[in-house]
Design a protein around this nucleic acid. Structure first.
Length: 256
DNA sequence: ATGCCTAGTGATACTAGA
């Protein structure tokens, strides 16, 4: 079974790219982030036509997450618990193919320091609490999406330029490490511990052409599923298509 | 240090992204 995550940066603006990528790579389950569409503007018919069921949590202008699957989707929750005043659509969770799939869009956090960075770290803490609850159930969980964190220097083209950025500050990296250290496996790093692998390239300065990228989209696997990890990768070529997202799709293959 | 690019909103220059 192939599960993918893709920050589409506007699900309607990227619909031709999304549909082409679905057709070419044929994933079983897909987590989408940054829909940038209100609930009623999700392109449900086109997604259905492509062969996928979908659940989504939209929001006007910003954010928005979705889970697509060729099989039945049983929604478990939308919205991250722990703060009733947080109205951003950044988390959706479902039971699919016998696995709990959590799809998340962690806040960017810039400029840092500041209220946006505080929101990021608070969101991270709430995610970590919720993730501990998922682990305590001893079931297969795939927690994936745009974490907006480069976990190590290997994940940034020029680490020295990013040390004060919300995506790479020590507090952010420490929060990611604390989460992973609960017992999660970073799927890409398990299979490729030393390789330079990016999932995002800025629209500025020909970043894709120069391969000046970041690895910020991640798959975290619970102990009950990490043994089934067979392959993982980034569909880097998609970043080179016309009218494409600044992120590339990331995927894992599970032997289930 | 800043803009570079791109999308959304809504009709203009903003915000937001990372």
């Amino acid at each position: 079974m192939k599960i993918a995550t893709y920050n589409v940066n506007g699900v309607n603006g990227r619909l031709p790219v999304l549909l082409r990528w679905l057709k070419e790579t044929n994933p079983d389950v897909v987590c989408l982030q940054e829909l940038k569409a209100p609930q009623e503007n999700f392109p449900e018919a086109a997604i259905k036509e492509a062969g996928y069921n979908a659940i989504w949590h939209g929001q006007k202008s910003w954010n928005g997450v979705a889970i697509l699957s060729k099989t039945e989707i049983q929604e478990l929750r939308r919205g991250l618990p722990g703060d009733p005043e947080d109205l951003h659509s950044r988390y959706i969770e479902a039971f699919v193919n016998g696995i709990v799939v959590a799809c998340l869009y962690l806040p960017n956090g810039n400029p840092a320091p500041g209220p946006k960075f505080d929101y990021k770290l608070g969101w991270f803490e709430r995610l970590t609490i919720h993730a501990a609850g998922l682990l305590s159930r001893n079931i297969p969980v795939v927690m994936t999406g745009d974490y907006n964190v480069m976990p190590t220097e290997l994940d940034v083209y020029k680490p020295e330029r990013w040390v004060d950025d919300a995506l790479f500050r020590p507090e952010t990296r420490a929060a990611f490490k604390k989460l992973v250290d609960q017992g999660w496996t970073d799927a890409i790093r398990k299979l490729y511990p030393d390789d330079t692998i990016y999932t995002f390239w800025d629209y500025f300065r020909n970043a894709y052409g120069r391969d000046a990228g970041l690895r910020i989209d991640h798959f975290l696997l619970s102990p009950q599923i990490e043994g089934q990890l067979k392959a993982a990768g980034v569909d880097k070529n998609v970043r080179g298509w016309e009218k494409t997202s600044d992120h590339a799709p990331v995927w894992i293959e599970l032997d289930v």
